[in-house]
Design a protein around this nucleic acid. Structure first.
Length: 390
DNA sequence: AAATCCCGCCACCGT
DNA sequence: ACGGTGGCGGGATTT
């Protein structure tokens, strides 16, 4: 019944800024890309990944970024799962920064290994009764949480209700997703496989579908953080994500200079306004008459590097992979003992990845992202800083 | 057609 | 109760 209230018409803030591109401009209407979680995350980061930022208020973020609160929760939850943020109080988060990522990653890595180890010894497998594989489960936070597992589908009794919820939280999903990469030699994983793996069992396309949707959400923000990147599985043509790990994205990055020479303004590629108030609509283009307050702070370089060192160090694979003795856990493609499940089907690409390669990829990614951003910016309001003609 | 994933309803949960 | 949180999945958009 109650039809959603009419929204203002699509606003076409198209104005060819300054680019010789073929720009028919009139590209109006709703554009899903401009409202992606990834872009929003990039903006979020641009807004808060800076010196002086200590606390972050959700309302403030939502308002500054011009989005509904709901979206902020999504971002904050995954950022928190990687240590970049921590909840301080209701509606309030503490900014920790990218420098907190390595530790978080390491913890996840160890947790994952231990968990797999545990599952390996106990017969509480919750998946296929045939081969064993890797991944997931277990919580993190240094908090006790006496979750001795034993819980799967049926809520044991009391508080398992809460745990059940936590079980499906975006944050936990994110951590488990990351464990998939960090606890195995897998470099590339498709969301389908990830979902399957993280699901343990119960496939009902329905459940899978939802899980994959979440994974997409997560992948988007992790991508904007450059922790992963979209690609394809080596063999098939199926889209998948590649783990990049943390590599002091800011600081040195050659891209910093290269990309700057063109636009003295914002640097980090995705800097865009996410607050365009054009909302999609099934038939008509209804647009919310939300106040759009583009706070667009041109992000000055992100050459912050708070704590002197500790950052740089990328992934710390090799060294502490086993942790419990034996690289058995999630490293399937490790000496395949009698056809360990179809590794080639689940994960792929396990090359050592050298520094250079990583940088190359990173750069390629930046260039790509930049191009995307650039082309997008040409059909979007350039934000004429001071003079507003007319 | 398949892959992506935005949007926001509304169940939950802490206070 | 109330308001902050945040699963969840319909279905619009992209690819």
């Amino acid at each position: 019944m109650s039809d959603p209230p009419p929204e203002n018409p699509k606003l076409t803030l198209t104005s060819s800024s300054s680019m010789p591109e073929s720009s028919s401009s009139l590209h109006h209407s709703y554009s899903r890309k401009q409202k992606s979680l990834g872009l929003l995350c990039t903006n979020f980061l641009a807004l808060y990944n800076r010196h002086g930022i200590e606390t972050i208020g959700l309302d403030d973020a939502a308002s500054k970024l011009g989005v509904e609160r709901r979206r902020i929760y999504d971002i904050v939850n995954v950022l928190e799962s990687v240590g970049v943020l921590t909840k301080r109080a209701k509606n309030q988060y503490t900014w920790k920064g990218f420098s907190a990522i390595p530790a978080a990653l390491k913890e996840l890595q160890e947790e994952g290994a231990k968990d797999t180890f545990h599952r390996f010894y106990t017969n509480e497998n919750v998946k296929v009764s045939d081969d064993e594989d890797d991944e997931e489960e277990s919580s993190s936070q240094p908090l006790s949480s006496s979750q001795t597992d034993t819980s799967k589908p049926p809520q044991s009794s009391d508080s398992s209700k809460i745990d059940n919820r936590r079980e499906k939280s975006l944050g936990l999903l994110t951590q488990n997703f990351i464990k998939l990469f960090v606890c195995s030699e897998a470099r590339i994983i498709s969301l389908d496989e990830a979902a399957k793996l993280l699901l343990g069992d119960a496939h009902n396309t329905s459940v899978m579908r939802t899980k994959v949707r979440r994974l997409y959400d997560i992948a988007n923000v992790l991508s904007s953080m450059n922790l992963i990147e979209k690609t394809h599985t080596l063999d098939s043509r199926k889209p998948a994500f590649k783990w990049l790990g943390y590599n002091g994205e800011p600081t040195f990055t050659l891209s910093s200079d290269l990309m700057m020479q063109t636009e003295p303004k914002k640097r980090v590629f995705g800097t865009d306004l996410t607050n365009v108030s054009v909302k999609r609509s099934r038939t008509h283009e209804n647009a919310t008459e939300r106040r759009m307050k583009m706070k667009q702070h041109m992000i000055a370089d992100s050459s912050y590097n708070q704590s002197s060192d500790d950052g740089l160090r990328g992934y710390e694979f090799g060294p502490f992979a086993p942790a419990t003795g034996g690289t058995f856990p999630a490293a399937p493609l490790e000496d395949n003992s009698r056809r360990a499940f179809d590794v080639e089907n689940l994960v792929s690409d396990y090359r050592p990845s050298y520094q250079n390669q990583v940088l190359k990829d990173l750069f390629a990614h930046y260039m790509d992202a930049w191009k995307s951003w650039y082309s997008e910016v040409t059909q979007k309001i350039p934000l004429p800083d001071t003079s507003k003609h007319h």
